[in-house]
Design a protein around this nucleic acid. Structure first.
Lengths: 155, 155
DNA sequence: CCTGAACTGAGACTCGTTCTCATTCTACGG
DNA sequence: CCGTAGAATGAGAACGAGTCTCAGTTCAGG
């Protein structure tokens, strides 16, 4: 589902696309869902439900989780599990384009980075070969880069 | 911490190493901890606490979690978060060698795959460049390959 | 073998997430 | 523009993974 060598569509405001695709999947475009999509669009990386809840004070927690689940089901939002216990959510890769994650070991922030297409083609090739060697059919890959961000390095 | 271009030490039975390193870190080598290390050693990929509890019927759940936490702290066990909500544990990469994860979308099984050192050097190079471009100092990377295993493909 | 500190075990507890059900809202047909 | 069926909401209960507490036990050094 998350493309390996898929060419990313680099449009600046994907919110409308997301809502349209959700509607096409048979979903109603309610206030809560619009708000969730808008909030995800405003984030620079995968975000926790708690963080979203903080921004969306008028969306109760149960609705927030349900909206996220529905959007994940419709394929427009992805659920990602890098960090300690809590789930993180972001717009699906075929909307934002394929990307890797840069995770700060110190503050836990996660930001998206777009690999150059040649770099990602290289990785996709390696990944496919490894999968094949173990009898798997690869459908995608995730690269998480662990490191320390500029802000955390300088005290 | 999880090496990018680190050359893996490919020894077949790392259990002794693990226990020695745990002892060097000031830990007591108790029955529970030995059992946990042995169980992890017997697995072919990252394993859930529930799965370990099933194998280690004589280790109560609170002890199991505590032992895992202590071993993670000592740097001999790694905590990994690929799948739905629950944490998975495996021996640290500097014991088992650097590896990627092959995750079956259908049955959820995770198996370790060792990249060839040239393949991993290539990936490490790409990763480092991406990190640098965003002001990060990369300390390691994780590659998760999503796919369908041979068993799930054939009904 | 003795002692103190580290560790264990049972269960209470926390917190992220999901479920339930009565009420409300959306989208569609008229 | 309005009525209606059914999808979606909201509040809170419920659930499950993981953590904490504390009295009792075990390990390792002397």
């Amino acid at each position: 589902m998350t493309g390996g060598s898929t060419a990313p569509t680099a449009d600046p405001a994907p919110g409308e696309h997301v809502l349209r695709r959700a509607a096409d999947a048979g979903l109603r475009l309610t206030r809560a869902r619009r708000a969730v999509v808008a909030a995800l669009e405003a984030c620079t990386g995968p975000t926790t439900a708690a963080d979203l809840a903080e921004r969306l004070t008028d969306v109760p927690i149960s609705s927030l989780y349900r909206s996220l689940a529905v959007l994940v089901d419709a394929g427009v939002v992805a659920r990602v599990h890098e960090t300690e216990g809590t789930a993180r959510f972001e717009l699906a890769e075929d909307i934002t384009g394929h990307h890797h994650h840069l995770v700060c070991r110190s503050c836990g922030t996660v930001i998206d980075v777009r690999p150059t297409s040649s770099a990602d083609d290289t990785i996709a090739g390696i990944v496919e070969a490894e999968a094949a060697r173990h009898g798997f059919t690869a459908t995608g890959h995730h690269v998480d880069i662990e490191g320390v961000c500029a802000a955390c390095r300088t005290p």
